[in-house]
Design a protein around this nucleic acid. Sequence first.
DNA 1: TATCACGCCGTAACACCTGA
DNA 2: TCAGGTGTTACGGCGTGATA
Length: 265
Amino acid sequence: GKGRQHRQRHTRRRGRMGRPPSSGGPAFRFTHAEVAEMEEHLRHLNNAIPQRNVIQGLAEKFTASAARAGKIPVQYKQVWNWFQNRRYSQRARTPRGAPPPQGKMLPTGAEEHHPASFRAQGSSSSYPGSHSGKSPSDGGQAEFEAKSARDGAWYDVAAFLSHRLFETGDPEVKVRFSGFGPEEDEWINVRKCVRLRSLPCESAECVAVLPGDLILCFQEGKEQALYFDARVLDAQRRRHDVRGCRCRFLVRYDHDHSEEIVPLR
DNA sequence: TATCACGCCGTAACACCTGA
DNA sequence: TCAGGTGTTACGGCGTGATA
């Protein structure tokens, strides 16, 4: 886009009206303070929409504020709309292939489908022949993923820097994680913690996901969201629609044994 | 089974900006 | 001045789950 930075600067300074209500009322806009407060709620709730009484409370609080004195009251529906729109726009704006905010990490290409789960491929029992985690034929996409000892999550491999034999005789490789620098490099057991990169499940492939299967799930915690191995405990089949698979899968994470119901995408 | 509330997704409508 | 792009808010369609 042209002059995007300039536009954003001006937007912050002056702001823009949104769509006016069909009832013919004046165009409405939240103040910066109101937006900041709603964003804070989103953060605290890990991007979830607050409960009805919270939204109602915010509407009443905004209406009673000095900035709204003598103006049209803020409606519950307007606050609710803001949360809906903000969540949707944040998802839509997440850049493909780029590390998400707050240091989150996604397998390469994951953003394209925004899946909650991936098929985990077999562990790589042989040392990757190349000193790169990429293959020439995959257009630069990472080919391997490795499990970090720091958090137990799986990350794309940008490059294999070196290798050695551990005391037990197991081969280890020094891994540079995709999207991270040298300070995050780790020595990793090749047999247990390096494998071919997991593949995103397509909508039509949900029928192949069965109880007992190992999948890679996107677990959203309060402070971080990472990819962890999980076992499928149960599959709740649902009718697909224009958006694709609507099935739900009960999974148990290997690293903390917590259980969660996740969508395919 | 019908009804309702709610959430998600996509888009309409508008204002405002940049650059030609 | 105008076309095109972008941000913000409003709204409709649809699915889901709870309840009568």
